[in-house]
Design a binder for these strands. Structure first.
Lengths: 345, 345
DNA sequence: CTGAAAGCGCTAACAA
DNA sequence: TTGTTAGCGCTTTCAG
């Protein structure tokens, strides 16, 4: 007995001198129960410290009130805040959330989805690797609602909650230009990912729209890691080509840049301006503090969860979902956060 | 149908032309099944994309293979790493983990525990607020295994996995003393918590053991927040009593100190040495990087989970647990990480 | 307003 | 090696 000496609804029924059905009724706040009876049953329940068995209940109502959260890594500074948003929203509707980190491993993603499906979660919030296109496809015959978070797998029918990466990067670069910078370098994210690709597009578009020429030598390929930022900066210094400003595709890489500059006695923002993306919590704590495009991480989580629960409700009522009609992607705005790394001298 | 058109074991049985029992047998890898039969059933299962209903299974075997994780806030930099450790360990035994943040709110803790109990998790890993003594007491009559993490509620029967806070703080201060500092201030953690209390004790003991007098004016009460660190440092500066070194009860407060020093043009480590505790990921990224006592967060998570699963196994076999006999607290060692904030000039 | 009975999808004796 | 049967603890008709 992992659960303790199972007190069951039957026990409560006997102790209260009523039928199981009646106990069930008071448990579920149904009308049609005499007030005295209700009171008596309630009393027995309290005294017995009874807690209905969720498994049994789920089995018959065919709903578990739990949702699955599948992300690359809860330990990545981006996700805890998202997770918290999801959790807070879930709690409002009495859902609990089961989470799993996949490290972007296909194999793991499969396993984890399978496990959640067996556990009969009511829905899934996922942030899958691009390579896993077909995994979502194979889910379509099941009627399990899914919401994608942060990354959207192209052509998938499931709605996504995310930001407009291209536009956000565009705005970032526009800001640097508005500050008077012309020679602006870009350290790209992982170009295997949609955000990585789109942020680069935004960078290019902003440069072009401002009649600045695109200089491929100013574009350094990174992978969203701090190390990549460090290396890119190192290379710029080595080549003697330190730009006026850098737009790193995420904060972590910007931190790498920061470190490289420190080691080479380059001053930010005096010698060059630096801008990141995402606004992870560290960014406000480093010195100089990092100018960045803030993602509304908490809200992304909440909205994803809200959308998912809506989908669940719909499917419970109608037995089916028309993804096309029902739900479009939710695009949340990012916000420029000016800090010291781009301060005017 | 949140779950899709429920294909059940019955469907598989019919399609395979065998009985439900036989299907169940192959599902659970029992012996006593003809190889041909097994193959045929397996084939049908695969073709039908069938996934057994975990609820139904759990209901009869009385085990859910899920555990609950109850922490103050997944968004607190300490916990994601712990959570990841738990998850990785859980995965090895095919458990999934349901998590919940409580913000140390009593009410929330109660609700969440209740919810998990209804969901019939097989065990609980908890980090509860001190004020919630009785909540654990009331759980004792249930036979649900519980492991405490990081904080242990005094007098509770449940084992804890954590560090030796007093010793760790002692070692931190000893290090500062060994570095030649005599006037060492301490910014305490939240003194409502055991870690907060014990780290202060460690500080005091180290001072005394080295024949340095304890100066109450050097002890500033904080609450583990960055702001508290900032305020404490501010006060020191204001009073014109900047010490030779500061031991902050955690890294976050040390970061506050860092900021206050920056604003007042005090140089670390030149003007004073600074030491934190925990080694959250930021600590290596700020400038100067922060000397600290590293908690083995990932391992704490893993060990807590391992212990819990052991307890679950025991209780499944024997139906009962002898907490006294079975399990003692697991105390993991912290480790001094020397970085720039205490570097010798 | 209340209860009896069927059944959710699965496992586990017990027979065959 | 296989099938029959009786539940696990709950909800839900359907009668009373």
């Amino acid at each position: 007995m992992a659960i303790g000496e199972n007190i069951t609804i039957k026990d409560i029924a006997e102790k209260s001198g009523v039928s199981i059905t009646t106990v069930s009724r008071v448990l579920n706040d149904k009308p049609d129960v005499n007030n005295e009876t209700r009171a008596k049953v309630l009393k027995v329940i309290k005294e017995s410290n009874y807690r209905p068995n969720g498994m049994a209940r789920s089995l018959v109502i065919n709903q578990t009130y739990s949702i699955g959260l599948i992300i690359p890594d809860i330990n990545n500074p981006y996700f805890p805040e998202v997770a918290r948003g999801i959790e807070d929203q879930a709690q409002k509707s009495s859902y609990s959330v089961i989470f799993s980190s996949t490290d972007n491993k296909l194999e793991r993603e499969r396993e984890v989805i399978d496990l959640m499906l067996q556990k009969r979660v009511d829905g899934l919030i996922v942030s899958l690797s691009l390579a896993n296109k077909d995994i979502l496809k194979r889910l379509e015959d099941r009627k399990i609602p899914i919401v994608q978070l942060d990354r959207k797998i192209p052509d998938s029918i499931y709605p996504a909650v995310m930001i407009d990466n291209k536009k956000s990067a565009y705005n970032a670069v526009q800001f640097l230009i508005d500050e008077g910078h012309k020679k602006i370098a870009h350290i790209t994210g992982d170009l295997q990912t949609v955000p990585g690709q789109e942020r680069q597009e935004g960078y290019r578009k902003a440069i072009l729209d401002n009649d600045l020429a695109i200089n491929e030598d100013l574009i350094y390929e990174g992978d969203f890691s701090k190390k990549a930022g460090y290396k890119a900066m190192d290379k710029m210094i080595e080549r003697g080509r330190v730009p006026e400003a850098i737009f790193a595709a995420n904060d972590l890489m910007a931190l790498g840049v920061l470190e490289a500059c420190r080691n080479s006695n380059l001053k930010i923002p005096t010698d060059l301006a630096l801008m990141g993306h995402d606004d992870i919590s560290i960014s406000n704590l480093v010195h100089p503090s990092l100018t960045t495009m803030a993602q509304p991480k908490y809200r992304l989580g909440r909205q994803a969860c809200e959308l998912l629960i809506n989908l669940i409700d719909t499917i419970q009522e109608k037995g089916e979902i028309d993804y096309d009609g029902f739900c479009q992607d939710k695009i949340l705005a990012t916000k420029l956060v000016k800090r010291d790394s781009t301060a005017k001298n």
